[in-house]
């Protein structure tokens, strides 16, 4: 309680008092954070949580069954909360979005760790951030898909008609493997959740885009799903200004 009040009064300019000396308060802050740290380590020993595990573990497999049950519950929960297919799809998309904005951070950290860039602190400047459309899409196509689903996406294409449209194809989306959409939900594709993840990743990488999932069943590939990515016009404009002479 007291430490939070200290934090509030310690930052910023207070017009009622004028410029303040921050000297003693900084010291108080330092002691309060160290006591916080102690609390964390004390609670951490009692029972281990996900925060105690190494971020860089090579294998992070989970059971497909429990994932599917969980996702099935998510879908039926979203269904009960929404009116109509479109609302259900946008709910799933939003849930995925909140994962995507965090997942970019995690996956690029893991990626760079795997290639040895973060192993010593002096080399940390070598971590890479994708700045071109094609590179970030390839990053999603390979690294992100591998991290999420254990395989690469099946195809990455550019639309022939629209300059700002790209498509990622997955022949068997892991998450909707066991989901069979009834006739009254005609156009629903539960991979809208994955589309949301992709959208979150692109948005947090400063490639503003709209992503949607569509089913394209083919003989032999009944669950084939295409993720259509529509970039904002300004992203395309920025790309052409920077890289095309």
């Amino acid at each position: 309680m007291s430490s939070s009040r200290l934090l509030v009064s310690g930052v910023g300019y207070d017009p009622a008092v004028g410029p303040q000396s921050t000297g003693p308060q900084v010291q108080q802050l330092a002691t309060s954070t160290s006591s916080l740290k102690r609390q964390f380590s004390a609670s951490g020993g009692a029972h281990s949580s996900i925060f105690d595990k190494n971020l860089h573990r090579a294998k992070h497999d989970i059971s497909l069954s429990s994932l599917c049950y969980l996702f099935g519950e998510i879908v039926s929960w979203c269904d009960s909360k929404s009116r109509g297919v479109q609302q259900l799809e946008s709910r799933l998309n939003n849930l995925g979005y909140s994962i995507g904005i965090k997942y970019l951070e995690l996956t690029s950290l893991r990626e760079n760790f795997a290639s040895g860039n973060i192993s010593s602190s002096s080399k940390s400047h070598a971590t890479k951030r994708e700045v071109r459309i094609l590179e970030i899409l390839q990053f999603i196509n390979s690294s992100v898909w591998k991290g999420l689903f254990g395989k690469m996406a099946d195809k990455l294409e550019k639309s022939q008609d629209l300059a700002n449209q790209y498509m990622i194809t997955d022949n068997l989306p892991l998450i909707s493997k066991y989901i069979s959409v009834p006739k009254e939900f005609q156009h629903l594709n539960c991979a809208a959740f994955v589309a949301g993840i992709v959208e979150g990743i692109l948005d947090s990488a400063y490639f503003q885009a709209n992503v949607s999932a569509h089913s394209f069943p083919e003989p032999g590939l009944p669950l084939k799903t295409v993720f259509v990515i529509n970039f904002d016009d300004k992203v395309i404009k920025r790309e052409s200004m920077r890289f095309e002479r």
């Binding site: 066991y178 009834p182 009944p222 669950l223």
Partner: peptide
């Protein structure tokens, strides 16, 4: 148990209309 029970659109004890399961 895979294709019927893990399908969120399947209601318990109701008729099974499921293309994946058929296949």
């Amino acid at each position: 148990s895979d294709y019927v029970m893990k399908n969120p659109f399947q209601q318990l004890d109701m008729p099974i209309k499921n293309d994946n399961f058929d296949r």
